[in-house]
Simulated scan of single mutants.
Amino acid sequence: MKRSYLWFWLSACLVFGLDRFTKVWAQTSLTLGDSVVGIDGWYQWTLYHNPGAAGGLWSGHADWLALISIFAGVAILWFIYKGPHDRNGLLLLGLGLMFGGALGNLYDRLLYQYVIDFIDPVGANYIYNLADKGIRWGLYLAVLGLWFSGKRLAKESQNVVS
């Protein structure tokens, strides 16, 4: 395995592992629907079984959501190994976070037919988990990494033409 892929696999394993650990904690420590003070004034812990995506969107379509997660994972792996990029660390880190998050939620969908959410920001109307944050922050880092890769690849192609 190329050393540059290390960032991808480390970040994917970190997100998946932390997501599983915290979801097991939530399932064993919290009562479904009850809120417990987490970080006072910022977060509370509320166990929620989300049958859909993003706050219950597409509830009742766990099979389709699982297929979408599988497709996303395969697309990320394809892009990592075959895609047109220069394998920079920021891009690989972001894609790894997204891959680990997609696997974390896919695991729940396949095992339970719902996703375990428990992080409940005070005053917000949504509940999420660490896999969701891995996907979100991974997307930000991957887009930034792609931007840097695009600039670098464009500069290299100009040097070749010159």
Rank of each mutant, 00 (worst) to 15 (best):
M1N: 08
M1A: 04
K2I: 05
R3E: 10
S4Y: 09
Y5C: 03
F8C: 13
L10R: 10
A12G: 03
F16Y: 06
G17H: 00
G17M: 01
D19M: 07
F21R: 10
K23V: 00
K23A: 12
V24N: 03
V24T: 06
W25G: 15
Q27W: 00
Q27D: 12
Q27S: 00
L30H: 05
T31K: 09
T31H: 01
G33K: 12
G33I: 05
D34L: 14
D34T: 10
V36W: 03
G38D: 11
I39A: 07
G41D: 12
Y43W: 05
Y43R: 04
Q44D: 15
W45L: 13
T46Q: 12
N50Y: 06
N50K: 02
N50M: 09
G52T: 08
A53I: 11
A53C: 08
A53Y: 02
A53H: 01
A54N: 12
G55R: 02
G55S: 15
G55C: 14
G55D: 12
G56I: 03
G56L: 07
G60T: 13
G60D: 13
G60V: 03
G60Q: 11
H61E: 07
A62G: 06
D63V: 10
W64N: 05
W64V: 02
A66P: 02
I68T: 09
I68A: 14
I70H: 02
F71C: 15
G73R: 03
A75F: 13
A75P: 00
I76W: 08
W78H: 13
W78Q: 10
F79N: 04
F79V: 04
F79R: 02
F79I: 03
Y81I: 09
Y81R: 07
K82Y: 06
K82S: 10
P84D: 12
H85T: 00
D86L: 14
R87V: 04
R87L: 09
N88V: 01
G89P: 02
G89M: 03
L90R: 06
L91Y: 02
L92Y: 02
L95P: 01
G100Q: 05
G101F: 07
G101V: 14
A102S: 14
L106I: 00
Y107E: 12
D108I: 00
Y112K: 06
Q113M: 13
Q113R: 14
Y114V: 11
Y114P: 03
V115F: 08
I116F: 05
D117F: 08
F118A: 15
F118S: 15
F118C: 14
I119V: 15
P121F: 14
P121W: 13
V122Y: 15
V122K: 10
V122W: 15
G123T: 03
G123P: 00
A124F: 09
A124S: 14
Y126V: 04
Y126R: 14
I127W: 03
Y128D: 01
L130A: 05
A131K: 11
A131Q: 14
D132I: 15
K133F: 04
G134W: 03
W137M: 10
W137P: 00
W137E: 02
W137T: 01
Y140Q: 06
L141D: 09
A142K: 11
V143P: 04
L144E: 08
W147C: 15
S149K: 09
G150V: 14
G150M: 15
R152M: 00
R152Q: 05
L153W: 01
L153E: 08
K155D: 01
K155F: 07
E156C: 05
Q158S: 11
V160A: 13
V161C: 04
S162R: 13
S162V: 12
